[in-house]
Design a protein around this nucleic acid. Structure first.
Length: 559
RNA sequence: UGGGGCGUCGUCAAGCGGUAAGACACAGGCCUUUGACGCCUGCAUUCGGAGGUUCGAAUCCUCCCGCCCCAGCCA
């Protein structure tokens, strides 16, 4: 339980809710909701909202509903609702029996609309979409009233009934709230609350041909579910007067809407629109591509859900637009994995080493700790033999000054095994290093020399004859610039990192990894954290995804 | 020129009239059978700016400046 036990943050929303809870408002109940529209996959921005809503509810002994905001059948699909539920569960939250759909309330919403019409607060407008737009005015000029604004209640009732009955074509009529065409807040200039859409709905099928708009549907859904605190992002602040207006007119349970800043993360994009573009244009390999900030993507990448929760707790909650540094996310991922992940030896770019004084027919087992800081996780036996592989990067024929790995004539330790000294460099015709000839010190078994001799470097290794082949996918940041969104005059895809994925097909890993289950994480010593790909790994085919590298002060040294 | 928000360290972010938390990043150092982890140290005399109120202001008032959102029959 490494970092998952991050104490719940205090923030302006929690302050408000704690105050309401303590003062007995809503009988002391706290009910929140996470209301995704099933038209795309969830991403880290949603994770912030999920952690907030479910977290705050739990902290106040309340509950949090999962409600699909499915009021636009032309964009929504069952595939998305299934994916969303799987992602929320994976993140570690449980909505219990509180699974809802805005579409469940279509009849009630319809009836409330009729009520509004009877109150003279809503009317059927027969202007075209373009006309409505021009009547709306601009940000600085008031709008003009629709010529249909003063239809009689009877006429409105008749027209609305016929809209519902399917008598009219899409776009021919809408139902509008009658509020104030001169309001400085454009949302209040007689907003459309129902439109005709002859589309099949993923839940209600052909039952309806008129569908409610967000502003109308959301507040009513919240009210029906007795949501006490309706938390949403900043861009809905302008809609709050409308949210309040409907509930006040209808005199029904009135939740409080509170807005917070959405999450932005450097070196990636967190907008549904952009993510869809990356997927459909083939810049990535689907919604769960490990380079994507989608929950499905980071899951496949190996980010632990507990770390994501810790991240959401640590970034804070405020109303100022901000961009969280990707380095913070990576730090928290490492923090969790450092504690949780068992260590393993894996060589990504193998360089053969022959230990000339090691008997050709000898094989032995060396004992390697599974976790340096957690002895209770035990040890394992790893096979050592005359021919091994080390990392190509761990040898330099002509070393730079601060390089303390293997060099000609130099001695290093093979982790948990022996000290070896390089005696000879074998090259091919092109001058490429093909093999190293070394000698080992039999007295240094386990990695320490009885004479107290010190070596500066310790290398990871695998036995050539015993190691298993594996494919390793090295993932890096998706974009090369911190803010791909806001680079002036450029499309965000212009900044895609061409090196965001490097696939290594010829890696060698220690044999114990054959038993690793899908999605399990390991630290490949000195390299980083890797997880077994949940889709492509098979019993006879090892595939690992690099979650994140280890912090590496060596690459920062001026070589 | 309309309406709604926001401006505290490079990045997030506490602070709610009593004299600038914490985290990440960064820079040094220690430790080390992962150049990892861990540990230590440093890192805002100042809170967008200018006035004002006060014994005392990041916190209250005034004006100014900057940034974000809004004119879908999307959410």
């Amino acid at each position: 339980m490494a970092i998952s036990a991050t104490p719940p943050a205090s923030d302006f929303i929690r302050d408000i809710i704690a105050h309401d809870h303590a003062s007995g408002k809503n009988s002391g109940l706290v009910v929140c909701r996470f209301p995704p529209e099933p038209n795309g996959y969830l991403h880290l921005g949603h994770a912030k909202s999920i952690c907030l809503n479910f977290g705050v509810a739990a902290e106040n002994n309340g509950c949090c509903h999962l409600r699909f905001d499915d009021t636009n059948p032309s964009k929504e699909e069952t595939e998305y609702v299934d994916a969303i539920m799987a992602d929320v569960r994976w993140l570690g939250f449980d909505w219990g029996e509180h699974l809802y759909y805005a579409s469940n309330y279509f009849q009630l919403m319809h009836d409330y609309a009729v009520t509004l019409i009877k109150m003279g607060k809503a009317y059927v407008c027969s202007l075209s979409a373009d006309e409505i737009r021009s009547y709306r005015g601009t940000l600085t000029e008031p709008g003009r009233e629709s010529p249909f604004r003063n239809r009689t209640v009877a006429e409105n009732l008749d027209l609305f009934a016929r809209m519902r009955a399917g008598e009219f074509a899409e776009g021919s009529h809408v139902l509008r709230a009658k509020i104030d065409m001169s309001s400085g807040n454009v949302n209040l200039r007689d907003p459309v609350i129902y439109r005709i859409l002859k589309a099949s709905h993923h839940r209600t099928g052909e039952a309806w041909c008129i569908y409610p708009m967000y502003d109308y549907a959301h507040c009513i859904s919240d009210s029906i579910e007795q949501i006490t605190h309706s938390l949403c992002t900043l861009e809905f602040e302008d809609h709050r007067p409308l949210y309040d207006w409907f509930l006040d007119q209808l005199r029904i349970f009135h939740p409080r809407q509170i807005e917070f800043a959405r999450l932005n993360l450097s070196y990636t994009v967190l907008s549904k629109r952009k993510l869809i573009k990356l997927v459909t244009r083939g810049h990535v390999a689907g919604w769960d591509d490990p380079r994507l900030p989608t929950l499905a993507g980071i899951r496949r990448r190996g980010y632990p859900p507990a770390a994501i929760r810790a991240f959401c707790g640590r970034i804070g909650m405020a109303k100022s637009n901000s961009v969280v540094d990707m380095a913070l996310l990576e730090h928290i991922i490492r923090e969790d994995l450092n504690e949780q992940a068992p260590r393993a030896l894996a060589v990504l770019r193998p360089l053969k080493v022959v230990i000339t004084n090691y008997p050709a027919d000898q094989v032995e087992e060396v004992t390697v700790p599974n976790h340096p800081n957690r002895p209770e996780l035990g040890t394992r036996q790893v096979t050592f033999s005359r021919e091994i592989f080390i990392e190509q990067d761990d040898f330099m024929e002509v070393p730079t000054k601060k390089f303390f790995r293997l060099v000609p004539g130099g001695e290093v330790r093979l982790r948990s095994a022996y000290f070896i000294t390089c005696n000879e460099v074998i090259k091919n015709g092109e001058g490429e290093i093909k093999e190293l000839r070394c000698t080992y010190d039999p007295a240094s078994r386990g990695g320490a020399s009885p004479d107290g001799r010190k070596v500066k470097g310790t290398l990871h290794w695998v036995s050539a004859a015993h190691a298993l082949p594996a494919e390793v996918r090295l993932y890096d940041r998706l974009f090369t610039v911190a803010s791909p969104d806001s680079e002036a005059g450029a499309e965000f895809t212009d900044h895609l990192n061409p090196a965001s994925l490097e696939t290594l097909a010829n890696c060698r890993v220690e044999p114990s990894l054959a038993a690793a289950s899908p999605e399990s994480s390991f630290q490949f010593e000195r390299l980083g954290y890797f997880c077994v790909d949940r889709h492509d790994a098979k019993p006879d085919r090892l595939v690992f995804n690099r979650t994140v590298t280890l912090r590496d002060s060596w690459t920062k040294i001026d070589k």
